[in-house]
Design a protein around this nucleic acid. Structure first.
Lengths: 246, 246
DNA sequence: CGCGTCCTTGAGCTTGGTCAAGGTCTGTGG
DNA sequence: CCACAGACCTTGACCAAGCTCAAGGACGCG
């Protein structure tokens, strides 16, 4: 069940069967981390590179006053820390939001994978998309009000989950508390709660028992000003295909 | 005067003289872009990779209501768009804040440079630091109030300018309007103005005719909760050396 | 001199934060 | 089967950070 990893990287490069086998074979072992536990701690210098196989994880930082900012959600197929080796120490933590299964890849293996140009290209692509996503989050925080910001996040997550085959046309599993959501949006839990109720009242989202459903995807896109270009999943037509045929 | 580029990359990898020559030789030509003009437009697929040689530039996006969010400042030595080729099209624009001199490198050259492991490592390093900086900006916007956020930005810029030899112990050239500053912080110009006056009143910053001076760097660090780890410029001791001996 | 760019100030309003409390749901142990 | 704890969700009243609208002043350049 490591397909999401391959599915994702196929958007970045045309990986042959051999490439795909090499990538899957790179995962030496898979461990399980309980919800609300750290996968990687800030300041550490992990030996292995980590990959989310199952579950929801997040990048986060704790600031001086004790509050937390989540800077990214990591879903199956996402790598946590390719090339920590280059930076030395983690400048942020990675935590399991729900229970997660985490794949481990040794730095040696990464290094040898990178020597294959197509694989190298795919991994660069993934890294650049992470960066683009981060930029979009910054825009989201700086220039959108909370309802739009929240809606935008849901649009993004639906599409990302669809792109790795983990969502149908309108819904995906979203095992996240409102507190985590608030920490991702940079607002208080209370405010996040009220904004969410607003979106619900407008029938823009239905979110029950960890299942997020977006009844009218187009309405949510319009509402939030969502433009998927930054995810670099291909042309608009390719995306339309993705949305209907998962 | 392309030294900042090399100075910066030396933090990421031990480049030999040959490597340095190869990097400098990669710059085929240098063009000048006037203040407030675009270096690269959103949606375009530039042929060349660009490098800021002189001046201040920024990454930005314009959102639906016409407001602008600046997502990064680019100073001499920073690359704008390594590997646009991989992503296809720019998902954001890059604009010259002040008049800029921009170096151009052909994609072919980048590709051949990347084949040299040490240079590849240095370029990965630069890209990862960009990403780390983006994460810190997100924390800055989400979890710090405007005065701290602004102060934090000034701490970052002073250190980055010092690291490429363009700042002395307490000051650097900051040819930026308050409007640009506001767009980087995600607030209105008016609010940025009032916050700036506050910092001035507390003698935390002196900013006159495009020259930014920070009379008491330690006080500004404390005030903003600045921790330079995310810039990955080396150990705390190495940074202390940097601050005294530029 | 006149225009554009930039900086500054004031008054009133809105978004989002703080403080405080209560409610729900689930799993655990008696 | 019930009591309890822990995590999570919800609501209300009040406050403050930051936005909007409106206006005016300073500076530099053709």
């Amino acid at each position: 069940v490591v397909e999401p990893f391959i599915k994702k990287l196929l958007y970045g490069a045309a990986l042959s069967d051999d490439h795909q086998q090499a990538l899957l074979g790179a995962i030496e072992r898979v461990t399980t981390i309980g919800a609300r536990h750290d996968i990687i701690q800030e300041g550490s210098a992990p030996r292995d590179v980590h990959l989310v196989v199952e579950g929801f994880a997040c990048r986060y930082k704790i600031v001086a006053d004790g509050s937390r900012q989540i800077m990214a959600f990591l879903v199956p197929g996402d790598m946590c820390d390719i090339h920590v080796a280059i930076l030395g120490a983690m400048d942020h933590g990675i935590g399991a939001v729900s229970e997660c299964r985490i794949g481990h890849v040794s730095p040696k293996t990464v290094e040898s994978l990178m020597r294959e140009p197509t694989i190298s290209r795919a991994l660069w692509w993934a890294s650049l998309v992470d960066e683009a996503t981060l930029r979009e989050w910054l825009v989201n925080m700086g220039r959108r009000e909370t309802p739009q910001q929240m809606a935008h996040l849901f649009c993004e997550l639906l599409l990302r989950m669809q792109s790795v085959g983990l969502a149908d046309e309108t819904s995906f599993n979203f095992p996240v508390s409102q507190e985590v959501l608030a920490d991702a949006l940079g607002v208080t839990t209370i405010h996040a709660n009220r904004v969410l109720q607003d979106l619900r009242a407008q029938d823009l989202v239905v979110w029950e028992r960890h299942k997020m459903t977006i009844p009218h995807v187009d309405r949510l896109w319009t509402f939030s000003g969502f433009d998927p270009a930054y995810l670099h999943l291909g042309t608009t037509e390719a995306l339309a295909r993705l949305r209907t045929a998962t």
